[in-house]
Write a protein that binds this DNA or RNA. Structure first.
Length: 358
DNA sequence: AAAACGTGGAA
DNA sequence: TTTCCAAGTTT
């Protein structure tokens, strides 16, 4: 009961891989493809665009050229190296994964999908990508691109973002992967999704595998199935700009919270209807400040984090700092408000604070 | 299995 | 402006 597609898997992979070799983009991680560079790039690319990653990749692997160097790095160092890329759990996981490679394998990257899956931050996609691209193991690597391309190619109406959807795609995709070119096949599928078979336009006229595609004679945009996203929520946030000579007071976000380890101006989200003055009095009071006087707004900015749209207003505040230091309170030079030690929101605020507006 | 997790750019 | 998307993983 072989389908025409599986019988001609050879032709499909030849056409796909041939197209890839002539059409692929020149990307940093494709030059000198080592297991470590592949691991780093795949983690950096998780939910992050090529345009964002490309200018950051070489600097990162220069600073951390192998698992040993990253394994030895401090929290502050890895956060600064990842600042602005988002999803900061990724870099802690990557460092922890590098540490376990150093301890268990002498600093070598595991060579199989099964072994890679045991590393923190390495899931079904990333393990498949490293195993196939770096080591040639004939396993699937189903990211957003491949989920979409395979859905259309095979005519599968499933949601690739669910475990069930991925499994059904995987079971039909694996037989198509050539044993002697698994990496090129998988990367070609990814590249095809990125360049041709796009979410809002399939562009079948330019597709190297349209002859094998179920969706071309129907409606490619009918695939894949996708679930509704969670609605975004608007929140207001107040922060205090408390200058102290050429320094400014900040707080360091504690472990376990989102953006843990970064510094930001003291403040918090407002409850509906709550006043900025009350909130800032409370925040600074609990940090140990006294004689708190909340002044004018000195900066406004808009920031989005996951599904929250945040309107930030920063007030100038005069206050007497606590005598004993401790807890999350910190003090940094004003110029560091635009450095990698603070949150991205803080760097946005700093653009207003330190210079012009709008 | 749904929700959380960052950010910037395109539609 | 709002929504969607980008080489996902974890809980």
């Amino acid at each position: 009961m072989e389908s025409p597609l599986s019988r001609d898997a050879r032709g499909l992979s030849k056409a796909l891989v041939g197209w890839f070799h002539s059409s692929k983009r020149d990307l940093p991680w494709r030059r000198n493809r080592t297991p470590w560079r592949t691991w780093v790039s795949e983690v950096m690319l998780q939910q992050t665009t090529v345009d964002t990653v490309a200018p950051r990749f070489e600097a990162f692997v220069t600073q951390f050229p192998d698992p040993h160097s990253l394994a030895a790095a401090s929290d502050d160092a890895i956060l600064a190296a990842w600042a602005g890329l988002g999803y900061y759990r990724r870099i802690r996981s990557l460092r922890d994964g590098a540490r376990s490679c150093v301890e268990a394998f002498g600093g070598e990257v595991p060579r199989t999908q099964a072994a890679l899956m045991k590393l923190p931050g390495v899931g079904p996609y990333t393990s498949g990508a490293i195993a196939s691209l770096a080591f040639g193991e004939p396993v699937a690597a189903i990211d957003g691109n491949v989920g979409r391309v395979a859905s259309r190619l095979l005519g599968i109406r499933v949601d690739p973002s669910t475990a069930k959807g991925r499994k059904s795609i995987e079971s039909e995709l694996i037989p198509l992967i050539p044993k002697d070119a698994a990496g090129a096949f998988n990367e070609a599928l990814i590249e095809l999704g990125a360049l041709v078979c796009k979410p809002s336009f399939a562009d079948c006229g330019r597709c190297p595998i349209r002859d094998w595609c179920v969706a071309t004679d129907g409606d490619p945009m009918h695939y894949p199935l996708k679930r509704a996203r969670k609605a975004s929520v608007a929140v207001r946030c107040v922060r205090a700009f408390v200058p102290d000579g050429c320094h400014v007071w900040t707080t360091r976000i504690p472990d376990g919270q989102r953006l843990a380890g970064f510094q930001e101006l003291p403040g918090r989200w407002l409850a509906p209807g709550e006043s900025a003055d009350t909130a800032l009095q409370g925040v600074l009071g609990s940090l140990g400040f006294s004689e708190v006087s909340v002044g004018d707004t000195v900066a406004n900015c808009h920031h989005v984090i996951t599904h929250h749209r945040i309107e930030v207003s920063v007030h100038r505040v005069e206050a007497r700092p606590p005598q004993v230091s401790g807890g999350s309170l910190a003090r940094i030079e004003r110029s560091l408000l635009s450095s990698a030690s603070v949150t991205t929101e803080t760097r946005k605020v700093a653009r207003y604070l330190l210079k012009d507006r709008r």
